[in-house]
Structure formats: C-alpha cells, structure tokens
C-alpha cells in the first residue's frame, strides 16, 4: 500500500438518516497520519454514528469516505454510487481498529485468545508469532498475567484494555475509540486513559469520541465539537476549551464543568 497520501482519512458531505431522523448532516473531516482527534458533544449529537460509519458498522446515507486518498465509498440517497473493490475495501478496513463503549470482548475465549483471534483467522498469520505479539501487547496494557483468564473474571477497565490490545493486534494505522471509558467505574478510567495516552504518544492516528475533557485537552491535536449532526466547532484543545466561539460549545462546556 502506498504511503504517499495526504490524508489518512477524509470524509466529504457525509450524512446519515435513520428513517426521517437526520443524525449526521454534511460532515467534512480530514485526518492526517498521526493526528489525535477527540470528538466531544452532547449525547444524540451523532458522534458515535459518525465513528461507526467510518468503519462501515453503519452505512452512510450519502457522502464520500476516503481512506489514504482512495475513494473508499461514495453513496447518494442510500445507494452506492462508487466504491473500491471488496478485497481492497476489506484490506483498508483492517487499517482501522475499533474500541467499543461496552468492550465487546468474546466471552467464550480467554484474554489471549481474544487478542490472537483476528490476526490468525482473518490475516492468516502464524499462530506462534501472533501469540508472541499478543503477549507483548498485553504487557503493554499491563495485563500480561491475565492472559489465560476469561473476560468475565476481569474488571471493566481491564476488559477495555484487553479490547485495545485486541484491536492493536491487527496492526491498524487508525484507532477509533467509541466512548471507551463511559461504561467504566470512575476509579478504573485512569488506567484506560493512560494506555490511550501512550498510544497517542507512539504516533497512532486516533479518533476518540469521549466525555473525558481532561484527556481531550491533554492528548488531542484537534478537538471537534459535534451537536445536532454537524461539527459545530473545531480547533485545538486550547481554542475549544479556553476560548470557544460557538454558543453551543460554551453551553456544553459550562454544563460539563459545573457538574
């Protein structure tokens, strides 16, 4: 795959309707390699839907999605106008790892098996090599001693760190985080954020939907404020948190900081 591209991820006029409800309206975003972008905003703003439509968990109604400057998908009025070949699409999709709010670990597999599953089954990699890499990843997220446990024996924070390791095992270039700490007890949030921070520092391209303003402020290169299906404001953390321009951003931040 060519590394000669301007944007690792780009969307043009992406919109999404559920029936008559317009969840995303004309979202335009360009992401450069290595950028860390945090998406904040009130619930129902379409943040998760946007993230999920990037790796095809949701089908967009219309708009274009580019991955590494290649037109990945172009849809208009719920019909696909243009797209890459399936195999190429699949290949590019594997460049995106996803971490879910509710972890979604495979409960019938041990931690190690969870991490090894996709590289072995999807990428047909050598089992021993994958296992070695998986153990390294588990060490990186601080869970090497839990390798043979089942997810149900782990705390939420540990499960989420396993989920991060599982996504990383596929060697993705982009990591999507869908409210990774929202389902966690407050005291468990820190460990997960720490792992994400280290990941960001290692140069991973990241898109995080999050309610952790401290994290966004500290780690993000760019913060998007979404409301009612549009990007209401975007800028550096400095701009958004200390000097928000849009009225809705101000209200949102005030409400959060007061709470």
């Amino acid at each position: 795959m060519s590394d000669n591209y301007e944007y690792i991820l780009k969307t043009e006029h992406v919109s999404k309707r559920f029936g008559t409800l317009e969840v995303l309206k004309d979202i335009n975003l360009q992401v450069k390699k290595g950028e860390v972008i945090c998406i904040i905003g009130p619930s129902g703003a379409g943040k998760s839907t946007f993230l999920r439509s990037l790796n095809q968990l949701e089908k967009i109604t219309s708009g274009k999605i580019f991955i590494k400057d290649e037109l990945f998908l172009h849809r208009e009025n719920d019909h696909t106008v243009d797209r890459l070949l399936r195999e190429k699409q699949q290949e590019l999709l594997l460049e995106m790892g996803m971490v879910f709010q509710r972890f979604n670990l495979f409960p019938h597999k041990t931690v190690l098996q969870n991490v090894c599953e996709a590289p072995v089954i999807v990428r047909k990699e050598n089992k021993d090599e994958v296992e070695k890499r998986a153990r390294d990843l588990l060490e990186k997220v601080g869970l090497s001693e839990k390798a043979d446990e089942y997810p149900s024996r782990l705390s939420g924070g540990q499960q989420q760190r396993v989920a991060i390791a599982r996504a990383l095992a596929m060697n993705p270039e982009i990591m999507l985080f869908d409210e990774p700490t929202s389902a966690l007890d407050p005291e468990l949030v820190g460990d997960v954020l720490q792992v994400m921070k280290e990941l960001a520092e290692s140069g991973m391209t990241m898109l995080c939907v999050t309610h952790e303003m401290g994290f966004a402020r500290e780690v993000a290169d760019r913060v998007l404020f979404m409301a009612d299906g549009i990007i209401a404001e975007e800028g550096t953390p400095e701009e958004i948190f200390t000097n928000p321009q849009a009225e809705r951003t101000k209200n949102f931040l005030n409400a959060i900081l007061e709470a």
């Binding site: 790796n55 095809q56 968990l57 699949q90 999709l93 594997l94 995106m96 790892g97 996803m98 879910f100 509710r102 979604n104 670990l105 495979f106 599953e117 996709a118 089954i121 999807v122 990428r123 599982r166 996504a167 596929m170």
Partner: peptide, 13 residues
C-alpha cells in the same frame, strides 16, 4: 449481544 457481531466485523471477520 449485537456487540459481538460488531466486534467481529470491526476485526475484519
């Protein structure tokens, strides 16, 4: 859980 399908899909299965 629907999340199991989504996790599998996100991993490329």
């Amino acid at each position: 859980d629907k999340g199991q399908f989504e996790a599998a899909k996100a991993l490329g299965m």
